[in-house]
């Protein structure tokens, strides 16, 4: 049992700045995820659907939020993880991910922290909002 550094409500727990979203990433994510929905990888399909271009899978952006969490806490600490998709992420968007301490609580015999999650693009437009519950004081397993 280790003691996590003192965290207070409102503290920034972690941030991540990502390079611009590329077509290659969307194609690789389609393959890696098994989500072959053509709206994200086939510009002809996107045009026929009335879109100007392909756009990122929402779960691709949520996966980046997962990476933000697993870079800063063991995956065994994750109790719950949720997002709302507020706006489409487009090619070239430069995303910044932020996790902010929203609540410190005790549940099921352990200390936990609720994080507010946000993803914004280079113009400050919010793409995702979310929350994660992490158990505190755990090492990897």
């Amino acid at each position: 049992m280790t003691h996590a550094p003192a965290l207070a409500i409102g503290d920034i727990f972690a941030t991540l700045e990502l390079p611009p979203v590329t077509r290659t990433q969307l194609a690789l994510y389609a393959g890696a995820s098994g989500d072959h929905n053509p709206i994200h990888i086939d510009i002809d399909f996107a045009h026929a659907a009335g879109e100007k271009d392909v756009f990122a899978q929402g779960m691709f952006v949520m996966a980046f939020l997962g990476r933000l969490l697993t870079a800063n806490a063991p995956v065994t600490a994750l109790r719950a993880f949720s997002t709302r998709f507020l706006a489409m992420t487009r090619l070239g968007d430069r995303l910044t991910l932020t996790a902010t301490v929203a609540e410190l609580l005790e549940a099921e015999g352990e200390r936990r922290m609720r994080l507010d999650l946000a993803v914004r693009d280079q113009n400050g437009e919010q793409k995702l909002s979310g929350a994660a519950i992490l158990a505190l004081g755990l090492q990897d397993l």
Binding site: N37, A48, A49, G50, R79, A80, F81, T83, R84
Partner: peptide, 17 residues
């Protein structure tokens, strides 16, 4: 229809890894 489909929300409640 994928041409009209969007993902609105997603949540996970993890019991274990």
């Amino acid at each position: 229809d994928f041409a009209r489909l969007l993902h609105g929300e997603q949540s996970f409640a993890h019991k274990r890894v």
